[in-house]
């Protein structure tokens, strides 16, 4: 069963046609990595999945096989089921680490404080930051911030995780610690869609790699096929550029 699916997904920003009919389907436990040049629409696609951007009329996004209708469905409830991690972390600077993680479960789901804290501590353990629960975001390195952001998203117990270039704003030496957490999640069976420029990681962790350019899917394949013998010229050009850079 597909956790998330899009049918004929279009998105305009004014006159700019960013997504031109994208169909993807992500099965339970699947790890899908989306790559492509900047401006290809990959981040917009991710943001349409949880309706941070409103898809154009006529587009369909399905969660657990049900079409989401923004006019009828409560999108807050929809977003609860999808965790998202951003390039620039967006931790809440006025809350310490543990409160960053507990604030949504407590206030959105009504989880009792004690229980929310216990879950948060487990998650901090999982992302390798058990000693940071009282720290403030401003005291953390980029890699630590991003791991807290992942814990914060996981605290809502989502069905799927969306990662939007989560290592792009990090110093190179901090990338590995974040990717390790993502890899652990994948190994634990979490369904995820990830926009990234980390080709090595895509090759190692993805079940499927999708190449996007100019608002459409150019090709998608298993990492071996995708990186070993890409079918499309545009993929080959792109891979040539990023792999030999």
């Amino acid at each position: 069963m597909n956790v998330i699916e899009t049918r004929n997904l279009h998105k305009h920003f004014g006159d700019l046609h960013v997504l031109k009919g994208v169909d993807i389907a992500v099965a339970e436990g699947e790890v899908v990595v989306i790559i492509g040049p900047s401006g290809s629409g990959k981040s917009t696609l991710l943001r349409c999945l949880n309706f941070l951007e409103m898809p154009d009329e006529g587009s369909e996004v399905l969660l657990d096989g049900e079409v989401i209708d923004p006019a009828r469905d409560n999108l807050d409830k929809v977003r609860e089921k999808m965790g998202m991690v951003f390039q620039h972390f967006h931790l809440f600077p006025h809350k310490n680490v543990i409160d960053n993680i507990t604030i949504a479960p407590e206030n959105v789901k009504g989880v009792p404080r004690k229980q929310a804290k216990a879950t948060a501590r487990e998650l901090l353990e999982k992302v390798g930051l058990p000693d940071k629960e009282k720290a403030w975001p401003s005291q953390l390195s980029g890699g630590q911030k991003q791991r807290v952001a992942i814990a914060r998203a996981l605290a809502m117990d989502p069905e799927i995780m969306l990662f939007d270039e989560v290592t792009s704003a990090l110093d190179p030496e901090l990338v590995a610690e974040v990717l390790q957490v993502v890899q652990d999640l994948a190994a634990a069976g979490m369904t995820m869609v990830m926009v990234t420029h980390e080709m090595g990681f895509a090759r190692e962790v993805a079940d499927r790699v999708i190449m996007m350019d100019d608002g459409i899917i150019i090709e998608q394949a298993t990492p071996d096929r995708f990186f070993g013998s890409p079918a499309e010229e545009r993929t080959r050009t792109f891979l040539g550029q990023v792999l030999h850079a």
């Binding site: 941070l52 807050d76 965790g83 998202m84 951003f86 809440f92 206030n107 789901k109 998203a153």
Partner: peptide, 10 residues
């Protein structure tokens, strides 16, 4: 900040 909050279901 607002997007992060909304993405958490707020």
């Amino acid at each position: 900040q607002h997007e992060a909050a909304r993405s958490l279901g707020m």
